[in-house]
Computed example of a mutant assay.
Amino acid sequence: MPKSNKKELSPEQREELFGALKARFEKNMHRHKGLEWANVQAKLDANAEKLWSLNEMEQTGGEPDVVDHDKKKGEYIFFDCSAESPKGRRSVCYDREGLESRKKYKPENTAIDMATVMGIELLTEEQYRALQELEHFDLKTSSWVQTPSDIRELGGALFCDCRYGHVFVYHNGASSYYGARGFRGSLSV
């Protein structure tokens, strides 16, 4: 059977994803106090393409979970909540320009390109810090974050991690990549 370009999940994939999301939601109520899973699931049921993006987050090791509820927009905000930077999104340059500037040993992909295909956005520094308020993540890895254009224009990109109980923001050339650096994403549904 030819692979469809539609961003839809099969009934089996939906059931498996809902099972994983519900179990994670119920196990980690400190991330979303006062929210009800039934309301989150209803919102997901009405947004098949967003459900596809959540599945991509799950399949690449992100362990997405609800971290906020924007009452004005009526949206639930999911972040990657894996203990370390998602395994399926590591060893990537920051963006296409960074990748193209490498003369040799080019990685297979970039954080920005992967996020775009997945239908998610890299966390901002502010979002990353908010995530770390819920619990500590990236104790052994690091994650690219959205980089301001003035830094990016000079060839740099930002990444964050958590060491010694503190969140650190660093810089690297956008063309750099490491086995322990990936990226975390956000998705509003």
Rank of each mutant, 00 (worst) to 15 (best):
E126N: 13
F183C: 02
A115Q: 04
D70A: 09
H30L: 09
A157Q: 00
F78H: 03
Q41A: 10
D138V: 00
H136S: 07
G88S: 10
M118A: 11
G61T: 00
Y164D: 07
G34F: 07
Q146F: 05
G173M: 08
A38F: 11
K33N: 11
F168R: 01
E135H: 06
M114W: 07
Y76V: 06
R163Y: 01
F18W: 13
E56N: 09
C81S: 10
T141I: 06
I120H: 00
A157L: 02
G179P: 08
V189N: 08
I112H: 03
S53L: 05
S101E: 07
K27A: 12
A38Q: 13
M118Y: 08
E121M: 11
Q127H: 03
C81Y: 04
G173N: 07
T110S: 12
S53Y: 04
G179R: 07
A20K: 10
K33D: 05
A42D: 14
P148M: 07
K106W: 06
L122K: 01
E125L: 13
Y128N: 04
E84H: 03
N47A: 14
S175C: 13
A115I: 02
D65Y: 05
F168A: 00
S91G: 09
H30C: 08
M114I: 10
N39E: 15
I151M: 03
E126L: 07
E108Q: 15
R31I: 07
V167K: 00
S10H: 12
R31K: 10
R184T: 02
Y76Q: 06
N5V: 12
K104I: 11
L123V: 02
N172S: 13
T60E: 06
R89I: 09
A83P: 04
R129H: 06
L9D: 05
L139P: 03
V117S: 13
G165H: 03
W52H: 07
M114C: 13
G98S: 08
K33M: 13
W144T: 04
N39Q: 15
S53E: 02
D65F: 04
W144S: 05
E97N: 07
K71D: 08
